[in-house]
Amino acid sequence: MEAKKILKDLVAINTIADKDNNRIMDYIDSFLSNLGFEIERKKNAETGKEVLIGKYGENPAIGFLGHTDTVDITDGWTTDPHELTEKDGVLYGLGACDMKGGIAAFLSAISETDLSKLQKGLAVYCTYDEEIMFGGVKDLVDAGTKFPPHVIVAEPTDLIPMIGSKGLIEYIFTFKGVTTHSSTPIDGKSSNKNAVKFLNRMMDFEQELRKTPSPFFRVPYPTMNIGIIEGGTSINKVPDKTTVYLDFRICDSEREYPLIRKAVDDAIEGLDGTYEIINDIASFRNNSELVHVYEEKTGKKGQPFFGITEASFFEGDRVILGPGPMTAHEANEHITVESLDKTAEIYSDMIQMLCGK
């Protein structure tokens, strides 16, 4: 089936914050079942949202992964966000770029393939809640899902092969103190002052981290961001609780993660503080021979992805590749017909290359 027709169907399903999660999974289930796929759907007991796993044949050699949720509608749309609109070779619609276009492309590629002639199997993974908490891919990983040797994550990349991304560690720190009037402070018992001392130590550490560059990344060194600081209720009261949110974007998890953990433990010592790690996502870089294949097919050099995608949650050979331009989360979100069709063509080529021999 033509990718544009599939995309039209997908855009018409409202999956803002996974609103119609079951409906879009029903659509993909029916589509793949009609092609002979075996379908497994896993429902999260707490949220009621589903992930879908589709498999054709034995021992899949390639997998396609896509999230079905979208962000909310922003101001400034000039077309109906839930109706795919084509103007001058451009397709407008909520999720057309991020990332129903990629899903439409791989469903189209699969439907145009003579599956009976494949020597190896293939798999499809459709998830939910990528935009906020990565709940769907976490469900797959927690269930012990075994991914194929090669996986294409169909995020929008404007047909640039994205072959890696930085890792992420997110911390919440809590510092305790003793509340008194500001005229009678107890030495060492201001939670705000303890937090500031800690942050000064960590900013010194950040400069040390930067001394080992990683030219592969656009920002070629690890970074630390102080996202939120909450502490105190009045200008004349010594605060008794301060919360600090930090994130680290890491170039090489194997080398940098132990350094960060030690720096945190050393910096917090003696400051009446505790911490919780709320996200711990490893960095990755694909150095396989398939990178050159994608570069040849797209005419574009492989690059690291600028943020975190579902590719960061499982191991193995994976590439992030999808249509463009990259207009995710924008008013009048769109991709071009040419890019959509080219994406489907590359996906078809990879199925034949990895499964047809």
Results as ranks from 00 to 15, higher is better:
D129I: 04
Y125G: 05
P148Q: 15
F147R: 11
I152P: 00
D139P: 00
T145A: 12
V141D: 06
E170V: 13
Y171S: 10
F173L: 14
K166P: 01
Q119M: 08
E170D: 10
G164S: 09
P156M: 11
A143N: 12
Y128T: 04
D129E: 09
K138C: 07
P148R: 13
E131S: 10
P149I: 05
T127H: 09
T145Q: 15
L168W: 00
I186H: 05
S165K: 11
P156I: 11
G144A: 10
I172N: 12
G177D: 03
K176S: 14
T145N: 10
T179N: 12
V151I: 13
V124K: 04
P185Q: 14
K146M: 02
K117D: 03
M133V: 00
H181V: 04
I172P: 00
V137N: 07
P148D: 13
G164D: 03
T179M: 14
L118K: 05
S165T: 06
K120P: 01
E131T: 08
V178S: 05
I152F: 08
S165V: 00
K120A: 12
I132K: 15
D129S: 12
M162F: 03
H181L: 07
I163F: 00
K146A: 11
Y171F: 15
A123K: 07
V141T: 10
F173N: 04
I172D: 08
G144L: 07
T157H: 07
T145C: 14
V137A: 13
V153N: 05
D139Y: 01
A154V: 14
F175T: 04
Q119R: 15
E130C: 07
